[in-house]
């Protein structure tokens, strides 16, 4: 494939929203990995406290990924065209993979029933976010749901995973780095899809602003909880919070 940015706009969308493009992209960083990391990367000894903290954080990641899986699959039905449907299908399998590698990581850490553990440990604010996202999808509100899913949720995960990958043990770090690469693609779709719509229908921006206002506090609460669980200093919470807000602003949806 030549540089996709040389293509005319119509061919560009056809290319970047295709299975073929997804396939080429993931081949680059998933080839040779098993459950999201290289088979030769193994666990170093971990204290019981660190292990417990990591399991709780992974439980929260699973809630986010589960919300993303259910959100993205529900969005296929209301996507306005074939290209968006095909792109969202690639996102569905990405989210399914994320959920799988996080569950698998928990089993590696000795959790025998990850689903039950997620129910027991997951953050309330993240669960509320998940419920609200699925309500937006069920109400067939395409712009609001894409914003909540592909901008807010993906930006939150992007900021948190990227930061956690720097501090994490080597297995978790490799898993997170692969997930972050997927999130970048999902955010790109959200930005592109909403950007084009806002340009032709400015009232959509006001509607998106309302959704952001409603969901921001849930995002920041769950972020605070994750940082606390990971045992990071308090100023880290502010820094990752800023990173999330900057990411959303960079996508053109500031406060």
């Amino acid at each position: 494939m030549s540089d996709v940015h040389d293509l005319d706009p119509e061919s560009f969308y056809e290319e970047v929203h295709s299975f073929e493009f997804w396939f080429q992209a993931v081949e680059g960083y998933l080839s040779g990995t098993t459950w999201g990391h290289r088979p030769e990367t193994t666990d170093a000894p971990m204290s019981p406290e660190d292990r417990e903290r990591l399991i709780t954080v992974l439980c929260n990641y699973c809630v986010g990924e589960s919300a993303a899986l259910e959100g993205a699959s529900g969005l296929i039905a209301i996507a306005p065209n074939r290209l968006a449907k095909v792109f969202l299908s690639t996102q569905v399998v990405d989210e399914g993979r994320h959920l799988e590698v996080f569950y698998h990581r928990m089993r590696d850490l000795g959790v025998t029933d990850p689903e039950r553990e997620v129910e027991r440990r997951a953050s309330r604010s993240l669960q509320t976010f998940r419920r609200r996202l699925l309500e937006l999808v069920a109400s067939k509100d395409w712009e609001a749901a894409i914003f909540a899913q592909n901008v807010i949720l993906e930006s939150l995960e992007f900021a948190v995973f990227q930061d956690h990958a720097r501090e994490a043990d080597s297995v978790t770090a490799e898993i997170l780095q692969g997930v972050v690469k997927d999130e970048r693609r999902h955010m790109g779709f959200g930005e592109n899809e909403l950007g084009r719509r806002v340009a032709t229908a400015p009232h959509i921006r006001a509607r998106i602003g309302q959704v952001k206002k409603e969901l921001d506090h849930l995002v920041l609460e769950s972020l605070e909880e994750t940082v606390r669980t990971l045992g990071m200093p308090r100023d880290e919470n502010e820094r990752i919070g800023r990173s999330y807000i900057e990411t959303v602003e960079r996508l053109g949806f500031g406060s």
Partner: peptide
């Protein structure tokens, strides 16, 4: 894709994610 949200367990959801693609 529509069946993912009504699947009774996470493993079935993940299989249906691959089927969706």
């Amino acid at each position: 894709s529509g069946l993912i949200n009504s699947a009774p367990d996470e493993a079935s959801k993940r299989f249906l994610a691959t089927q969706t693609l």
